Simulated assay, not measured.
Amino acid sequence: MFPRIAQLGLLTLALATLSFAQSERGLIAGTVTDQSGAAVPSAEVVVVNTSTNATFKVTASSTGEFSAPNLIPGAYRVTVSATGFKRVVQQNVIVAASSSVRLELQLQIGQVSEQIEVIGNAASVQTDTAKVSTQVQNKLVDELPLVVAGSMRSPFNLVAVAAEARGDGQRLSLGGGQAASWDATLDGHSVGTNRSGDTAEAALNTPSVEGLTEFSVDTNGFKAEYGQAGGGVMTFASKSGTNDIHGTVYNFLRNDAMDARGFFAARRSVYRQNDFGGTFSGPVRIPKVYDGRNKTFFFVAYEGFRNRVGANDVILSVPTPEMYRGDFRNWVDQANRVIPVYDPSTTRPNPNGSGNIRDVFPNNQIPTNRFSRTSSAIAGFGSTVAPNRGFAPGTSG
């Protein structure tokens, strides 16, 4: 299989700016109130991605409501300030793929220069939508074991952790829907093929598992844009570079040197499989020309697959050399009784009952002049597949 380059081409520039809404994006919404529970209108809400420092500013409405949409999955810091109130900072707000997070932020009377910092995860229960969703975030994507058995790892293997998923390949179904009726997107773009839903083919349109940051499986109440999906939708989000330089190298190895010999095998078969690759990411920087920190990032992922498998030892029955010459005198069953070979040209109605009868070839030998030209040519290869075990003639080889 050809090596797979994750992301768009060899190099993907991830711009930390607002773009058109995409299905893998999330949002942070909420309400700003004072200590009495009254709405605080026109409060300034600043949402910052802690990995890239990408900043989004919104203003609360007259009822204190705010919404920061189109956020890439990741960790955020939310700061709320208003005249006459202390500034509130909510740390570690996690936005998952295709999800929304709701915050209830309460301001206390004081100077804006004073600050209240809230440390801890925001509530992950979604009250803005009624959809049923399983979200798998970056830590699990990186650490979940995937079996490497004869083919490259597939992002769709991760979907098995969702309780709503059943089967694989063309048999995969979500949320009790029909097999192969699901939909899947990567960064807002469909990864389906023109054939019936098959995860093996759809995987060719996705990056390496190392290039994914997280994904979600929605099985009920998903958006109307997925109206063609039956049962559920898988939403994958790719990784992006950050202000720090990161890199990984991996090799999932299987080698016959570490295998035991099969009980019936004379020796170990060759089995050398390598699923290898690496990732590299960071800010785009050109010395004295451009500094892309907080603005422009890159992420590159490469995955290669090599699989060398030898033939397995198998015990089979093969014709003996004399059989290729039409001699079946030694062809016997397990009770050492000769197995008769009938002459088809002697087929005739049974005078003593129903059906037909035939005569056995004399001495259980087929005359060579009865061989067709094709059979004669094939019979010439008989000596190359001679029995190599000491069983009864014509029974095992």
Results as ranks from 00 to 15, higher is better:
residue 5 I to Q: 13
residue 7 Q to C: 12
residue 12 T to V: 06
residue 12 T to H: 04
residue 15 L to G: 00
residue 16 A to Y: 00
residue 17 T to Q: 07
residue 18 L to E: 12
residue 19 S to D: 14
residue 27 L to V: 04
residue 29 A to V: 03
residue 33 T to C: 02
residue 37 G to H: 00
residue 38 A to Q: 11
residue 38 A to T: 08
residue 38 A to M: 10
residue 41 P to Y: 02
residue 48 V to F: 03
residue 50 T to V: 12
residue 56 F to K: 07
residue 57 K to D: 02
residue 59 T to S: 07
residue 60 A to P: 01
residue 66 F to A: 06
residue 66 F to W: 09
residue 68 A to G: 02
residue 69 P to A: 05
residue 69 P to Q: 04
residue 79 T to W: 06
residue 80 V to T: 10
residue 82 A to H: 00
residue 83 T to C: 01
residue 85 F to W: 07
residue 90 Q to V: 07
residue 95 V to A: 11
residue 96 A to Q: 15
residue 98 S to D: 15
residue 106 Q to D: 02
residue 108 Q to H: 06
residue 108 Q to A: 10
residue 113 S to V: 11
residue 115 Q to M: 11
residue 117 E to I: 05
residue 119 I to P: 00
residue 119 I to L: 05
residue 120 G to H: 03
residue 122 A to L: 05
residue 124 S to E: 12
residue 124 S to K: 12
residue 124 S to T: 14
residue 125 V to S: 11
residue 131 K to S: 15
residue 134 T to Y: 15
residue 135 Q to S: 15
residue 135 Q to F: 14
residue 138 N to G: 10
residue 139 K to W: 11
residue 140 L to V: 09
residue 144 L to I: 09
residue 144 L to P: 03
residue 146 L to G: 00
residue 154 S to L: 08
residue 158 L to V: 05
residue 163 A to M: 06
residue 164 E to W: 11
residue 167 G to M: 10
residue 169 G to E: 08
residue 170 Q to F: 09
residue 172 L to G: 03
residue 175 G to I: 08
residue 179 A to R: 10
residue 181 S to P: 07
residue 182 W to Q: 12
residue 186 L to P: 03
residue 187 D to V: 04
residue 189 H to R: 07
residue 192 G to F: 01
residue 195 R to F: 10
residue 196 S to Q: 14
residue 198 D to G: 06
residue 201 E to L: 12
residue 202 A to G: 07
residue 203 A to R: 01
residue 205 N to M: 03
residue 213 T to C: 11
residue 214 E to V: 14
residue 218 D to A: 15
residue 221 G to S: 14
residue 231 G to N: 07
residue 235 T to C: 09
residue 236 F to H: 09
residue 239 K to N: 13
residue 245 I to C: 08
residue 250 Y to P: 05
residue 250 Y to R: 02
residue 252 F to A: 14
residue 255 N to D: 14
residue 259 D to M: 05
residue 261 R to H: 04
residue 262 G to V: 06
residue 263 F to W: 08
residue 264 F to P: 12
residue 270 V to L: 13
residue 270 V to A: 12
residue 272 R to F: 03
residue 273 Q to F: 08
residue 280 F to H: 14
residue 280 F to K: 15
residue 281 S to E: 09
residue 285 R to V: 11
residue 286 I to G: 01
residue 289 V to Y: 02
residue 293 R to A: 04
residue 295 K to P: 01
residue 297 F to V: 04
residue 297 F to D: 01
residue 299 F to C: 12
residue 300 V to C: 15
residue 301 A to R: 11
residue 307 N to T: 04
residue 308 R to P: 01
residue 311 A to R: 15
residue 313 D to M: 13
residue 315 I to M: 14
residue 318 V to D: 00
residue 319 P to V: 03
residue 324 Y to G: 01
residue 326 G to F: 00
residue 327 D to L: 01
residue 329 R to G: 04
residue 330 N to C: 03
residue 331 W to M: 00
residue 332 V to G: 00
residue 336 N to V: 02
residue 337 R to V: 07
residue 339 I to R: 01
residue 342 Y to D: 01
residue 345 S to Q: 10
residue 347 T to R: 13
residue 348 R to Y: 11
residue 351 P to R: 13
residue 351 P to Q: 12
residue 352 N to R: 12
residue 353 G to N: 08
residue 354 S to W: 10
residue 356 N to A: 06
residue 365 Q to C: 02
residue 366 I to W: 00
residue 374 T to G: 13
residue 380 G to R: 13
residue 380 G to A: 08
residue 384 T to L: 13
residue 386 A to I: 12
residue 387 P to M: 05
residue 392 A to H: 02
residue 393 P to T: 02
residue 393 P to D: 04
residue 393 P to K: 03
residue 394 G to D: 00
